[in-house]
Amino acid sequence: MSDKNEVSSLYPPPPPFVELFTEENLVLFEECRADTEKLAKLTDKQREQLKYFTKPELPKDGSYRVFGNVWNIKDELPELSQMGIEQLYKKHNAASGTEDGTTSEADISPQDPQSGNNYENRIQELKKLLKSLLLNFLELIGILGVDSSIYEKKLDEIRVIAINIHHLLNEYRPHQSRESLIMLFEEQLEHKRKETEHINKICDEVESQLAEL
């Protein structure tokens, strides 16, 4: 703190108004919200301070800037087409509505109508894309060997494939998060079960010892 040149922390310090959030002010704010007369009696300084207690409105254009990037308020994975990239894999109806609200036509083949097979399909698509990636690289090398002036098109194709793979993987993320959550729950459950078991075992022992007295 004393040395200004020293980097004190990686993240910027909290905004100065955090100090206004005292118990006292919180109570005052609640009171003023219920009672406008009380608000009128406050000093200008108090009123100025209480302004920070009302949540600011969400930005109107649906996005905000932080750490030098623009972010959407609604946190979602943009479609490839929105980013101007051709989608190479088949679009399946997402297994859950929360994950993907768009209604692209169902490409699920008739023999596996269950939504559970979506991820199975994605795995297949991933493998296909990976193989095309290798093939395209081989083609690129071939092109470079014969006529390097047309390499750019091939390079772009490789780029599109790579972006597609990344996008497909990112689409998979909500699924993985749920899976991780399940694992965490199971661990916790097991831990708690063991604890309870242990306590009960000791209790049983003590009780039987007492009974012998």
């Binding site: 991820y119 699924h175 993985q176 899976e179 729950f185």
Partner: peptide, 30 residues
């Protein structure tokens, strides 16, 4: 790695059901 992606064979609904039931179990266990 692709083959070892977790939970390939379950759908999101199944996952949510599982989370739900685990949550109940956790509360009971607590």
């Amino acid at each position: 790695l692709i083959d070892s992606l977790p939970g390939v064979d379950v759908s999101a609904q199944e996952q949510l059901h599982r989370i739900d039931s685990l949550q109940k179990q956790l509360i009971k266990m607590e």
